Simulated scan of single mutants.
Amino acid sequence: MRTIDVPGAIQLVVPGNVRALDPGPAMFGAMLRGWEQQQQSRLLARKTIDDRLSLVRRFALFTATYPWEWTPEDVEAYFSHQLSLDPPLAHSTVRGQQGDLQMFCAFVTDGRYGWAKACEEAFGQFPVQVCHGWNTADHVAEFEGRPGRRALTYDELQALFDAADERVEQTRKRRRKGVLAAWRDAVMLKQVYAYGTRRRETSMLDLSDLRHNQRARDYGRFGALEVRFGKASRGSPPKRRTVLTVPEADWIVSVLEEWVDEVRPGFSPGGHPALWVTERCGRLGVRRLDEVFTIVREHAALPPELDLHCLRHTYITHLIEFGYPERFVQEQVGHAYASTTALYTWVSDEYRNRLLEESLRRRTERVGGKGLGSR
């Protein structure tokens, strides 16, 4: 197969009139640059590309060999080592890394890019695919997240919100700085639950994303939330969606109104558009969101396995329990497939018992209507 001028091809990365003094490292570095270019042409996120390049470098460092010397046994040895660490890598992480390594091998063995031919000419060896079905993890479970990640119970959710509010009062009573920040943190956590937003989606919210809903005029400018930085996939731009304020969470309207009109101006944000601002008038970052949840969770004495994303799980679960159709829930949270929404749903025993009671009631009515001994 002849090489063609596609992003990542060897002739576009390695000058034809230059001979490296140390050909091994030079060839490996060129391969990585070529793969980087190939992924950039697919519009993949910078972080995705960097993580993949870092994995390949770590694998090469572990094996102390170059791609044209790798064997399937190297894959087994590397990931056996990763699983022996404390704590070991999660199953989903291992499977993802194996997929990334498989993609790199597919790139350097594809004849259109010319790397295999160049390696054979330079080293007498050529790279092969080292990741196969028999030496990599299977995707056998629909949900591969941490078992501890779950929806909060109603009591846990109330305890979390109470702890967040208590932090505000404690800070105020002690006459210490940080009352506005604690207030912001409490409202932010409630917003994450009331709209089921992800971390980055929450961080990137602006005041202009607070929207009216003509079908819910009583909510004013808090009838909906415009999410403009939804989770992207396969190199696509961030996905957008509009999350409607549901009646079961209409308490968030007065909470957000107080934040926007009375509390947020205390930060003197000027013209900064962010809904969640810092004491230095910047945008509240994703890392800080995690820190806030951890602080409040510990204050509420909740289990340590709970994290901020669990509020999104809770939102989805509660929407199902409130009786909303799966399609509505799917659009509210921005899932491309209904099966994804189902993976995030933990319906309580109370809700399932209500469904069972309703089914039994309908069955009893049908039997009673037919009369004794009827068929």
Rank of each mutant, 00 (worst) to 15 (best):
L284V: 10
L284F: 05
G285C: 03
G285F: 00
G285H: 09
V286G: 07
R287P: 00
R287K: 13
R287W: 06
R287Q: 14
R287F: 05
R287S: 11
R288P: 02
R288T: 12
R288Y: 08
R288F: 04
R288Q: 13
R288I: 04
L289M: 14
L289Y: 03
L289S: 01
D290S: 11
D290M: 00
D290Y: 09
D290C: 03
V292W: 02
V292L: 03
F293P: 01
F293C: 05
F293E: 03
F293A: 03
T294H: 02
T294G: 00
I295Q: 15
I295T: 15
I295N: 09
V296S: 00
V296H: 02
V296K: 07
V296P: 00
R297D: 06
R297K: 12
R297S: 07
R297E: 08
E298F: 04
E298V: 12
E298A: 13
E298D: 15
E298S: 15
H299I: 03
H299G: 15
H299F: 14
A300I: 12
A301I: 10
A301M: 12
L302H: 02
L302C: 09
L302V: 04
L302N: 06
L302G: 04
L302A: 07
L302R: 08
P303N: 12
P303Y: 12
P303T: 08
P303A: 14
P304M: 03
P304C: 07
P304A: 14
P304R: 15
P304K: 14
E305F: 04
L306N: 10
D307F: 02
D307W: 01
L308T: 04
L308V: 08
L308I: 11
L308R: 00
H309L: 08
C310L: 11
C310N: 09
C310Q: 06
C310Y: 06
L311W: 04
L311H: 06
L311R: 03
R312Q: 07
R312T: 09
R312Y: 01
R312V: 10
R312E: 04
R312S: 01
R312F: 02
H313I: 11
H313C: 05
H313Q: 10
H313S: 08
H313R: 15
H313E: 10
H313T: 14
T314A: 07
T314M: 02
Y315S: 02
Y315G: 05
Y315R: 11
Y315T: 06
I316S: 02
I316K: 02
I316L: 05
I316M: 00
T317M: 08
T317C: 13
T317K: 02
H318Y: 03
H318D: 12
L319H: 06
L319C: 08
I320M: 11
I320E: 03
I320N: 04
E321L: 10
E321G: 06
E321S: 09
E321R: 11
E321Q: 13
F322Y: 13
F322Q: 14
F322E: 15
F322L: 13
F322D: 14
F322C: 13
G323I: 13
G323S: 10
G323Q: 07
G323F: 09
G323D: 07
Y324N: 01
Y324M: 08
Y324A: 10
Y324S: 04
Y324G: 02
